[in-house]
């Protein structure tokens, strides 16, 4: 077991700064997701931790040991790759045993560890097969078993579920969480899928443009985004940002008047789609329903508030149809106020 200290890590590709002074501390046994859109630098950061990519500046310290200039093979890590990288010319057994063999483990230990890892991932019956005969989900399990067989202090995962179909991804996600909770391995998990990050991680580091823009628990990242980027990227549908005018410390939302963190001017009210109560038109923020999508567990309504498009979650049996106009009453304590210019969160009181 080990903690991971990423200290002021910078990466330049020529004139392009891919990572800008990243500092991140992953506690022992913690599961941290690096979440961000493609090109945000999350995979580069993971590869720098693994030593597969060089860094321009900064340090990587794992379990108190400075590994910045230690070659990959001596870092004692395990990694699961996006394309699995399960060796096609080796049986499943030999794939899982690979790391152990490289460590020079004796036959008894190899057998015991392979068996344990295979049982954990439910692939005991596949040990004699070659990867070409396996489905994507099974290959993914082999890749995870190969990583866990060495009982690594640190596990790195690079978009491990992105090549699986939706149903399999859901299943694998739950399995992964259970397995890694049991193993207690310190894990960094790269993903662009916010659902995955939310569901799996103890904490999420949201990355954007080579920086970590927020590092917090999933619920905090979801409920209290520190910028419009985080609010828009995390959560589906993305957070609504309604531009409102403030006078005398009060924000005017249709018939409602809410205390705002600034005295006057223009702010953004960040409100999640599910944080609206549906009320009569003249008792809240007037909302012009344009589209209603019945999604089973709820209905997603898209409509217009003043000249902005926002999304609202309604009960599945909602009677409101496209073309009607209703009122919205936001749950006041869940509103995240953002600066209209910079898009960063404002304090909760002025």
């Amino acid at each position: 077991m080990a903690d991971i200290q990423i200290e002021r890590v910078r990466k330049d590709f020529g004139a392009v700064r891919a990572l800008d002074e990243i500092t991140l501390h992953v506690a022992d046994g913690e599961f941290v997701a690096l979440l961000g859109p493609s090109g945000c630098g999350k995979t580069t950061l993971l590869r720098i931790v693994a030593g597969l990519e060089t860094r321009t500046a900064g340090r990587i310290v794992i379990g108190g040991r400075d590994l910045s200039d230690v070659p990959t093979r001596n870092r004692g890590l395990a990694m699961v790759f996006q394309n699995y990288a399960v060796f096609p010319h080796m049986t499943v057994y030999e794939n899982i045993a690979f790391g152990l063999r490289m460590q020079g483990a004796d036959t008894t230990r190899v057998q015991a560890q392979v068996k344990r890892a295979a049982e954990l991932l439910h692939i005991e019956m596949l040990l004699d097969r070659y990867p070409a005969k396996l489905s994507g989900g099974q290959r993914q399990r082999v890749a995870v078993a190969r990583a866990l067989a060495v009982e690594p202090p640190v596990l790195l995962m690079d978009e491990p579920l992105s090549n699986l179909d939706a149903l399999l991804r859901l299943e694998m996600r739950a399995d992964l969480k259970a397995i890694l909770q049991e193993a207690g391995t310190t894990t960094i998990y790269v993903t662009h899928d916010q659902t995955e990050a939310m569901g799996l991680a103890d904490r999420i580091a949201v990355m954007h443009g080579g920086r970590i823009v927020q590092f917090d628990t999933p619920m905090a990242v979801y409920g209290r985004p520190q910028s419009t980027f985080v609010g828009g990227f995390v959560g589906s549908p993305p957070m609504n940002f309604i531009k409102v005018d403030v006078t005398g410390g009060q924000a005017k939302l249709g018939a409602l008047s809410l205390p705002a963190p600034v005295a006057s001017g223009s702010v953004l009210a960040g409100i999640r789609a599910e944080d609206f109560a549906l009320v009569e038109r003249d008792k809240g923020l007037p909302f012009n329903v344009l589209v209603v999508e019945p999604l089973g567990s709820h209905a997603l309504m898209t409509g217009r508030v003043a000249d902005q498009i926002i999304r609202v979650v309604a009960p599945p049996d909602t009677a409101h149809a496209a073309g009607t106009e209703i009122g919205l009453a936001p749950v006041q304590q869940r509103i995240v106020w953002m600066d209209a210019g910079s898009g960063t969160a404002l304090g909760r009181s002025a």
Partner: peptide, 25 residues
């Protein structure tokens, strides 16, 4: 694919081992 050699490296293989056990086969 480059990932095979990278995976072998992560799991502790030296360059010669990677050549012999991964690249050559």
């Amino acid at each position: 694919p480059r990932e095979y050699a990278e995976a072998a490296e992560v799991f502790g293989a030296r360059p010669w081992t990677i050549f012999r056990r991964i690249t050559l086969p």
